[in-house]
Design a protein around this nucleic acid. Structure first.
Lengths: 342, 342
DNA sequence: TTGTAAGCGTTATCAA
DNA sequence: TTGATAACGCTTACAA
């Protein structure tokens, strides 16, 4: 069976507290006995019980990560960044996916609370009101990722990408390519803050170029590829249709590319397209998609570093030296805005 | 601060064991006190300590999932299936990514052992020798996913897709489309069992059609897109080049498509292409990719159900009524083997 | 129907 | 340098 600290103590002929000290390299224990105990521990296949340790230590070295679904490639990469950084710091990641259902979100948070995680990272999703209440009740540091909700308690902060600047970069790129009529395909959901910000950046670039922010050039997608697909006919309807379009995200842009192809439009000659996110698909579609790359892994990395700092601060009941972090996206120019020949 | 069972007991004027019983719906406790205690628990924001419970119960209701990287979309979907099924059964998922580095693999398993997970699911990776030893030492049920390693201990089983049949389906499809010279692009790694099996299915379909299994038609890729890209010139070299090709996986096929396009070959007219996996990209490339779809979510689901059965069996020290499970892939016909016009 | 007491595997305090 | 002993929060005989 599983060897405990007491089993080792019995075999070694010492008390279990000596074993505990030896294994945690306490300086007071005799070097020889320490060595003997360590050898014994290895031989007996000893593995410390994290649960028992957590009970007495008041920390579990575990953090919870709440996602809508891990099968979203964007989220997956972020989680990879979290997990990898957590591992380096001796932390373990518990995964909780909510499926975007309020019920499951609450259950997930409750579960994490029971597991006594030392901190929580919440990716995406619009942290519902109900959900948020539970989130604060958990009484551990919370880091919101790409979420524009106001920071809640004293140990709640956020890490996100600069949506406004990203929108600006994407649009300025199109302006620089000579486009004058540039459309925006939104996520079509009121109060979606990333959407609002990206659109604001779009407007800023237009204004800066002396172009009007024409509401007639803003179309409603849904953030998924079918939304982009459906928007094309509307885009082409006006007597003087836009020559370029900036989409809320890559999936929307990919749908748009597909329907443009079906309609016999050539991209980028007839219509230049820029997306946002840089999901893996972006570089494989034809034409490959110009986009704003989010530093996904780094987002996860930063979020984990931040909870770590918050956890340490909380332990010492100190005011954490932390502030909301904003990372910059990067323009990745591909074929959909420039063409193969150029 | 965090309310414990004792805090509730104090307020309710009963002993902490009564509270414990009430909260776990023990039939012996007085209905009125039960109700009172439950209300109190809610008011005081009580959350049971999973660690403490695990300590006395000998089970943590937690399973560990070992992946190479969660940012692989294939793995992500599998993990989604695992997590979702786990959640339904009251289980929690601890994620451990190994990055395919032996060191980290071992550390990951050791960490899961410390957390006293009730079971482990290992996806992909060729379970190294060293790694495997640690895996058996963990003394809990292990389910190997898409891994052809022999089952280890009495509580180790596997869930996988039928690689051979998948290879057969893919190749038969090409035969039925009238192709006589059909190539295979392998993963180019000796002893890769999925590769071996898919190739065996390929041969079987050829033989069945009265065609030879010509080793000259087998080319070495590397399982990634650049491998597929590099293989094209070799493919075209012979005086009578193949008219169709079955690739070990989608990434290889996508690379092949890309270089075919660059070389001015039209797919499927000049060269029909079939992949394996059905990753998200497969339906977005141009032409879209015919492939063998692996039931990813279901693989995860089955794996979780299986560990669950094994855990129950182990608790009752019974011989588990379980056997290695093989799921069937499904041929998904798209443009790369049939063409848009047909 | 309830309370007392033991114990799960640790760490930590205090004496020796 | 080491050993008793208490404590963490919980479940579960055993007694009352």
């Amino acid at each position: 069976m599983k060897a405990s600290i007491k089993d080792i103590a019995r075999v070694a002929g010492v008390s279990h507290s000596t074993v505990s000290r030896a294994l945690s390299d306490s300086p007071v224990v005799n070097p020889e006995t320490r060595a003997r105990i360590k050898r014994l521990a290895r031989e007996m296949g000893y593995s410390p019980d994290a649960g028992a340790r957590g009970l007495v230590m008041g920390r579990t070295l575990t953090i919870g990560v709440v996602v809508t679904t891990i099968s979203d490639p964007f989220i997956a990469e972020v989680v990879q960044g979290v997990e990898s950084t957590a591992f380096k710091n001796g932390y373990t990641v518990i995964l909780a996916s909510s499926g975007a259902e309020p019920e499951r979100e609450v259950a997930a948070v409750e579960m994490l609370r029971s597991k006594r995680v030392d901190g929580v990272i919440v990716t995406a999703s619009r942290v519902g009101a109900l959900y948020k209440e539970h989130l604060t009740r958990i009484e551990v540091p919370v880091v919101l990722l790409n979420n524009h909700g106001e920071s809640g308690g004293p140990y709640t902060f956020s890490v996100r990408v600069d949506d406004r600047h990203g929108g600006y970069l994407a649009t300025r790129h199109l302006v620089e390519r000579g486009h004058r009529r540039i459309a925006y395909v939104s996520v079509g959901e009121a109060g979606h803050s990333s959407d609002r910000e990206r659109q604001a950046g779009y407007c800023q670039a237009l204004t800066e170029a002396g172009l009007p922010c024409d509401p007639a050039l803003v179309f409603a997608g849904n953030g998924r590829w079918d939304g982009g697909e459906r928007v094309l006919p509307l885009l082409c309807a006006p007597p003087e249709p836009p020559t370029a379009v900036f989409c809320f995200n890559d999936m929307t842009a990919v749908g748009l590319l597909r329907s443009a192809r079906a309609a016999g439009l050539s991209v980028p000659e007839d219509l230049a397209v820029v997306g946002f996110d840089d999901i893996p698909i972006a570089s494989y579609v034809v034409p490959s998609l110009t986009t704003i790359a989010q530093p996904k892994f780094e987002l996860g990395e930063k979020a984990m570093q931040m909870v770590w700092i918050l956890i340490e601060a909380q332990r010492e009941t100190a005011t954490p030296q932390v502030h909301d972090t904003i990372l910059q996206g990067r323009l990745v120019v591909r074929e959909s805005s420039v063409g193969r020949s150029e």
